Computed example of a mutant assay.
Amino acid sequence: MSFSTLGDKSERGFLDGQFLIAMPSMQDSNFTRAVVYICAHSQAGAMGFIINRAQQISFTDVLHHLKIMDQADTIMLPLQTRDFPILSGGPVETGRGFVLHSDDFVSESSIPVSDDISLTATLDIIRAICDGRGPARATMLLGYAGWGAGQLELEIANNGWLNCPASDELIFDRALEGKYERALALLGVSPEMLSSEAGHA
């Protein structure tokens, strides 16, 4: 599934609005210890964002790259804005930026992904954040995770992922350290329990 089909909510899959938590047996290094928020799931496939992987570039780097603000002006931004989190959302279209945010900000291009969370992938939200008009809670992600028809279901069947209802608090939690463990805790599971189960049917 691609980002362009996200807005079509005519059919929802059972993983919509769920977290995927990578099992220790996960073979794909892109998803080692990953927590993925699934924004769309249907028979056509699934897409979502890794929410616990740091990105090497900063928000001010993004502002410079997009020519929204120059170096001198970014120094004047509030610290909270300069430290706005940029995450590595997944291995697909890694040069493209997306903002997951609370639904108190809406633009023409915003797509609701749950009752409380929207996704915007246009410059207007970046400008709004710079101007102090942005959403109360938000995080920017470069790239996304995508699966073709039946691919994710097969990975789950092969014990690659655990899934559970997503937590908005965890999505927007800026503390990436330990987010994997906190996601597992939503299921009452610890990493040690998973390690001891690895390799056992």
Results as ranks from 00 to 15, higher is better:
120 T>V: 09
107 S>E: 12
193 M>P: 01
22 A>P: 05
2 S>H: 09
112 P>H: 10
170 L>W: 08
82 R>Q: 12
131 D>P: 04
71 Q>L: 15
153 E>P: 00
137 R>K: 14
71 Q>P: 02
164 C>Y: 02
61 D>C: 07
7 G>M: 11
65 H>T: 11
63 L>W: 00
52 N>W: 07
171 I>L: 12
43 Q>V: 10
87 L>Q: 05
163 N>T: 09
23 M>G: 03
183 A>P: 01
194 L>I: 00
189 V>Q: 02
50 I>D: 00
54 A>T: 14
95 G>T: 10
140 M>V: 12
65 H>G: 10
182 R>T: 04
116 D>H: 10
106 V>G: 13
139 T>E: 04
156 I>H: 02
189 V>A: 00
8 D>F: 11
132 G>Q: 03
95 G>F: 09
142 L>E: 11
70 D>R: 11
180 Y>G: 04
6 L>Y: 06
134 G>R: 00
90 G>R: 01
48 G>M: 08
145 A>F: 15
162 L>M: 14
120 T>C: 14
61 D>G: 06
133 R>L: 10
67 K>D: 12
105 F>Y: 13
190 S>Y: 05
165 P>H: 03
85 P>L: 01
157 A>V: 05
93 E>V: 04
10 S>W: 06
185 A>R: 04
3 F>C: 09
147 W>Y: 04
82 R>W: 03
99 V>I: 15
33 R>F: 05
21 I>Y: 00
116 D>E: 15
98 F>M: 08
72 A>S: 14
66 L>Y: 13
